[in-house]
């Protein structure tokens, strides 16, 4: 089944990013196709390479980047990103900035869209 995931909150402060990640890992292992992951609102902060968490903690941005490297389309909303000072230069590899049209396509084309937020 084609699944899409939308994440509204930034890293560490809220559980949304972790919940979404764990959900997606399970979905991938079950053989579902991830149509896309869309970061909106403060969710755009999840994939900046400027974050440097303590070494004994998970590295949220690198984790998303690694997931992107497997071919999953990870999209950061351009309007939400610009508003918050997030631009291409600060993003980890394997994610891209694009418009809300991408979220629209995910909502229409994915069989299921799951929202993680606060």
């Amino acid at each position: 089944m084609k699944l899409a995931v939308c994440i509204y909150e930034g890293p560490y402060n809220h559980a949304a990013s972790d919940s979404a990640y764990n959900f997606i890992q399970a979905a991938v292992q079950k053989g579902h196709e991830i149509k896309g992951i869309f970061f909106y609102h403060d969710g755009v902060y999840n994939v900046t390479k400027l974050m440097e968490p303590p070494q004994d903690d998970r590295h949220i941005a690198n984790r998303w980047s690694a997931l992107g490297a497997t071919g999953i389309d990870i999209v950061v909303c351009i309007a939400a990103a610009k508003r918050r000072g997030i631009v291409d230069d600060v993003l980890v590899p394997n994610v891209r900035i694009s418009g809300l049209g991408q979220l629209t396509m995910m909502a229409i084309e994915a069989d299921r869209l799951v929202v993680f937020g606060d």
Binding site: Y8, A79, G99, T104, I108
Partner: peptide
Amino acid sequence: YVYEGLEVKLIMAAYDA
């Protein structure tokens, strides 16, 4: 949330949904 949520609605309205 309400403000940015409205932006999504306006964009989505341009699509076949």
